[in-house]
């Protein structure tokens, strides 16, 4: 009983601390979770953790939340998953709630406005950097379809005002169909040989 309580508390406190102290999103926090749960606590095997990370990155939603659900469930079932989700979600919830309290009072202040305007240029640059990096990966595949999909999606969302969720559904289905077709071909070739 005591040991179980300790496990629950450690699950919660570990994810809480990682979530509160990690800047830079899912791809930064996942390696830190691996460090904590595989190396320090030894609760998950290295190989198992890699599987969990692969699943977390394949699912919709924030990768940090997905990974924490899987870790919690793996260690202590549904109760564990609930605790790790709470641990991951609470820090941003508390921090942004606190900032929101000041936001309305402070936003019209001239100095704050100047700083926010400066940082907006910074955010624009950060996103531009992300798009350039991701875009180069897409072009680097040296296949025709990905760039065409990229261009059409951009026009669809930006120019033709197509619903963004529709674009995601269509492209996801196209990706699934392509994979299944390739897999089918692979099987047939295998049968012939």
């Amino acid at each position: 009983m005591n040991r179980e309580k300790g496990v629950y508390w450690k699950l919660f406190s570990s994810t809480f601390r990682l979530s509160a102290g990690t800047f830079g999103g899912g791809f930064v926090i996942v390696p830190l979770m691996r460090e904590r749960f595989v190396k320090e606590l030894g609760w998950i095997e290295e190989r198992e953790m890699l599987d969990l990370i692969a699943i977390a990155e394949s699912c919709p939603g924030a990768i940090a939340v997905n990974a924490s659900i899987l870790v919690g469930y793996h260690v202590a079932g549904c109760a564990g998953a609930l605790l790790t989700v709470l641990g991951t979600v609470l820090p941003p919830l508390v921090i942004i709630s606190a900032i929101s309290c000041f936001y309305s009072a402070v936003r019209d202040n001239a100095l704050v406005n100047m700083a926010m305007n400066g940082m907006l240029a910074g955010v624009a640059a950060v996103i531009c950097d992300v798009v350039l990096t991701m875009g180069r990966e897409v072009l680097g595949e040296k296949r025709l379809m990905p760039p065409v999909i990229m261009l059409l999606s951009f026009l669809a969302v930006r120019v033709w005002n197509v619903n963004i969720i529709l674009v995601i559904l269509v492209c996801g289905l196209a990706g699934a169909a392509g994979t299944l077709r390739r897999a089918g071909k692979g099987v047939r070739r295998h049968d012939l040989s």
Binding site: V130, I149, M150, L152, C171, G175, G178, T179, L180
Partner: peptide, 19 residues
């Protein structure tokens, strides 16, 4: 993985649009 691969170019495009 196939779904993700199909989505990646679209996701880049949509982030670009929001950016």
């Amino acid at each position: 993985k196939g779904i993700l691969a199909g989505l990646r170019p679209a996701v880049v495009a949509m982030i670009a649009s929001a950016g």
